[in-house]
Design a protein around this nucleic acid. Sequence first.
DNA 1: GTAATTTCAGAAATCGATTGCACTATCGAT
DNA 2: ATCGATAGTGCAATCGATTTCTGAAATTAC
Lengths: 338, 338
Amino acid sequence: MSSTQITIKDIARKLNIAPSTVSRALKGHPDISESTKEAVTRVARELDYQPNTVAQNLRQSKTFTIGVIVPEIVHYFFSSVISGIEDVAYSMGYHVMICQSNESMEREQMNANALMASRVDGLLVSVSKTTTSVDHLLALQKRGIPIVQFDRCYPDLDTCSVTAQDYQGGYNATQHLIDKGCKKILHLTAPGNLIISQERAKGYKDALQKNQIIFDPNLIILGDSFKTAKEAVEEVLKHNSPPDAIFAVNDLAAIGAMKAIKEHGLRIPDDVAIVGFSDDPTITELMDPPLTSVLQPGFEMGMLATRMLLEQMDKKSNRGIRHEVLRTELVVRSSSDR
Amino acid sequence: MSSTQITIKDIARKLNIAPSTVSRALKGHPDISESTKEAVTRVARELDYQPNTVAQNLRQSKTFTIGVIVPEIVHYFFSSVISGIEDVAYSMGYHVMICQSNESMEREQMNANALMASRVDGLLVSVSKTTTSVDHLLALQKRGIPIVQFDRCYPDLDTCSVTAQDYQGGYNATQHLIDKGCKKILHLTAPGNLIISQERAKGYKDALQKNQIIFDPNLIILGDSFKTAKEAVEEVLKHNSPPDAIFAVNDLAAIGAMKAIKEHGLRIPDDVAIVGFSDDPTITELMDPPLTSVLQPGFEMGMLATRMLLEQMDKKSNRGIRHEVLRTELVVRSSSDR
DNA sequence: GTAATTTCAGAAATCGATTGCACTATCGAT
DNA sequence: ATCGATAGTGCAATCGATTTCTGAAATTAC
């Protein structure tokens, strides 16, 4: 433990100059002569000087850190968002502090408080499924910390946001199934009040209507995980004649449905066509058959959200509240290609 | 932007006492009378005071932050390690700063430097596939920052470590296949110099030997991702008679192999049994058939590594360099159950 | 009633870097 | 020779909280 860290004072002492001069020299301040600058950088290198960012942060009341709260990093989508965030943040000299809410509002509140205490300069957040209040986010806003929401946005929170075309994705997925001749299309949706799920469901309904297919409320059922979706579909198959297609709110649910369909002895896509949402490549391409899915551009979403946040953080470039929507794209694979 | 943040000075002024008294009162220092403490906490609440952790960190030259470097969070295993890290860290009042190396040594070096600059109190690291030098980690060590390596450990780096029983996992997987009557077992291994892969391969070889099966070097081939594994197996099937089992160094490789086997018209597990490694439940249970795999306890690994790190960070409790090995467990599913 | 403790608080230094202001040369201009 | 301007540095305050040292009042001891 080299407990004594090197500071600008050490450099100053060694050169018989003032610490302020060292500071300015290291920062390339124009007041300082070239010869002094060279001497300072040389000694700094010799002593292996590392500026104490904590002290810098205190002095400048800025931490160059962005806080991120996501439901769970285990999902490909959120992982790729995070990669996008990191790319932009790093390139602009910022650090990233990632927190998982584990789909729990309580944990999300803890995270928000911890990030506030850590004095992050800005926050990127995608709310949990169970979030029914955002006082914890308002607290940051009240302290002047800019927030950008992405993907899962909370309705009454006045911040910038980046989302994907959830409605359009749902619409296109459904239209695709209709184009393939499907008439009885089941939709697996998420419980709770996430706007993204509602939008996907709305797209589904509107596509049906547009094609003169009467919407049957019994064909929307809950199931947004492998297990719940599988069980839900099993239940349907037990009591009713099978649907000829299933559009699931996410890929894991689609896989659950696929499993149930197969176990019931039906063929995919011939008997039942299946479409998922998000396009997690570690799932969709590996399945048997590969799964058609609506691609959500996670990486781009992360990049854009971060750029918007940095913009908000800089009073000069601040363009006010904006809501960006990224394109989704239907990636057709064998599970629906008949 | 409430640019003026509340400080202990504001509380002091309001109560006509000294800032030092406020500090002590908030910390529950015994020197301060109950009445003063109450008054201080009351005013602190009234003003919605939040201590400036940056200032605290500077004063105590401690950031209460743990740095984490992992190859890629998108893998279930690393996600679960991170969850384990968070659990322990949060419960001990620490923050976590997560960085991805993206399997690039250069990025890993950047991450290490950034974390050093951020003055993390300790580092948890799992090296990238391409890491061939650890000067960037030695730099932290030189500064007295404790390091604990997990899962992927670098051979000549003298730190605490937590790993899983890779050798034993490889051995058990192979023995299991032999028990199922397999005689020609292919092993898909990772390129490069990761010790974990070497250990798994060694377990494979030893199990063969123990069962009087002659080890055929042609039966160890490279393939540690879906794509590379699939192609490698396709190649084998094209030129040779198929193996009756495949043991893959990880789950994605196993799935790639599975795909190639199926496309070749062979049945799993009847013609070819398959075993993976890590047991990523978002893969193994979803596959068709479900994949047998060697479970690596990621969450526990994260917890243990963090506990060891905290121990190292506390001079009093420091028990010196230790190497912990966690149990792996073969989870048998249909892909090998015949 | 005086001395010795104890209790409770304040003053000031400190952590390390930044920055407004002041100061000293140096040089050219008048 | 004097005045300004300019370049190059240093001094000291500052960010906000912690902590050592010091001191006054209150309490106890004899």
